[in-house]
Design a protein around this nucleic acid. Structure first.
Lengths: 238, 238
DNA sequence: TCGAAAGGTGTACGGCGTACACCTGACAGT
DNA sequence: ACTGTCAGGTGTACGCCGTACACCTTTCGA
């Protein structure tokens, strides 16, 4: 009665299997619970076995990012820069939606993975083919920031609202909050669904995202139309 | 010849002293080198002594954030919503500039610290007093995102450029990069100072930041002027 | 047949956050 | 002046973490 992890019957490890298991583990239990030991256990293998397929944890994380980012599809038939950019960014949003850990991991890396570079290249290409100068393209890419990946980067990440412990004292705290931070309270009150989220993930829904995205795209189009160039403050790009 | 950490002569610990030392340590050696043990050592104290002043590492990080965010000054005499918002955001940028770890720590917390709430409250207040509806204010706060704190959230954080290892093969890699990601290469080439940074921290300078900020503020002003309301897609705020 | 490689194992190390019991010195109440 | 309390610093220990290194097995081409 050898357990289900019978080493003989078990499918052989591979980089891809490791990465897929890591993604599944992060999806299921959160990125902070992803450890080499835990991942090895999920794969029915001893921790050090993983190191035959990934160099270290950093590379594992890179690989996971590429798995997720590689899943961003492209519309391909090019319907003008605006629709192309918009489509690609919303596709990225779709791809990253079900992997909440991915954005955080991407941000913590030292540079873009190949899949990320490809994504950026596609977006840059849409701008350039849409008549944006190199200069302006550079600026609008900066302005997009992490929106490139489909997420408005809020000030803080979690779904919480009240100062810190998740539910501190559900009622009294809200009173104090209203008194000390009247404008925050007003906003929170107006947009409260059921949770009292202020500017948290709970609000970062499709509508909210597209509002900000379109606001930027509108601005971009105006600058492009005006033949904008980085004159105002002297220096070239950056 | 008792060493400089003579327990008798050493100033007594306090929450404030712990926090200040933690900020200094993070500033000096990076947030990833900040451990309770290392911090205790810097203070000439045994690790567990810290726990008499902060509940745990999480609370330590919160405290550090409040130290930094609490240093954001306000212009106070109110010169119209746009200058007020702009000024406050640039003040935040100034305050966070010398603590590169702060933004990352803030993002990783579960909710805003008191100082953060105060900052947000001030910005929201500027919008409201400037004639923005609650609805529109809510949306523009989302659109600002982490720019509220003075930083454009780029896709990835570090100063790197070429795919991954810091300098992989300085020349050959650049050729491959140009071939595989032509648009990225074009942008990188155009804006290269000395390092080949693409869309990294190296570029996130004042000019770049203010470009994006003003683009958004322009958009906000237009919406305000038009009496915008969240009509287009049905639902209320979010 | 054999030698080398590829891939899984076991042990061990140094670092982390922190629970828990303990000690020490200052000080308030009698 | 004695004593009880208690804030604050100490020491030890536990269970995690990533991973270096030596080892063993399996497979497969020459």
């Amino acid at each position: 009665m050898t357990p289900p992890t019978d080493p003989a019957r078990r499918a052989p490890l591979s980089r891809e299997r490791v990465l897929r298991a890591a993604v599944a583990l992060a999806d299921g239990t959160g990125i902070e619970a992803l450890s080499m030991r835990r991942l090895a256990q999920d794969l029915g293998v001893v921790p050090m076995a993983l190191y035959k397929h990934v160099a270290n944890k950093e590379e594992l994380l890179d690989g996971m990012v590429d798995v997720v980012v590689g899943g961003i599809g492209s519309p391909d038939l090019d319907p003008g820069w605006r629709a192309a950019v918009r489509g690609r960014i919303l596709a990225a949003r779709e791809a990253l939606r079900s992997h909440p850990w991915a954005l955080q991991v991407i941000r913590s890396r030292n540079g873009p993975t190949p899949a990320l570079l490809a994504h950026m290249d596609a977006v840059i290409g849409s701008f350039r083919n849409g008549g944006f100068s190199v200069d302006l393209t550079h600026h609008v890419m900066h302005a997009l920031g992490s929106r490139l990946l489909g997420f408005t980067q809020e000030v803080f990440d979690a779904p919480a609202a009240a100062p810190h412990p998740r539910p501190p004292e559900p009622d009294a705290a809200l009173g104090q909050l209203a008194e000390r931070y009247p404008y925050v309270a007003e906003l929170a009150g107006a947009s409260a669904h059921d949770d009292g989220s202020v500017v948290g993930r709970g609000c970062d829904d499709q509508l909210e995202f597209e509002f900000a995205l379109d606001l930027l795209l509108d601005g971009f189009e105006r600058l492009r139309h005006e033949g904008w160039t980085s004159a105002p403050a002297g220096g070239q790009a950056c």
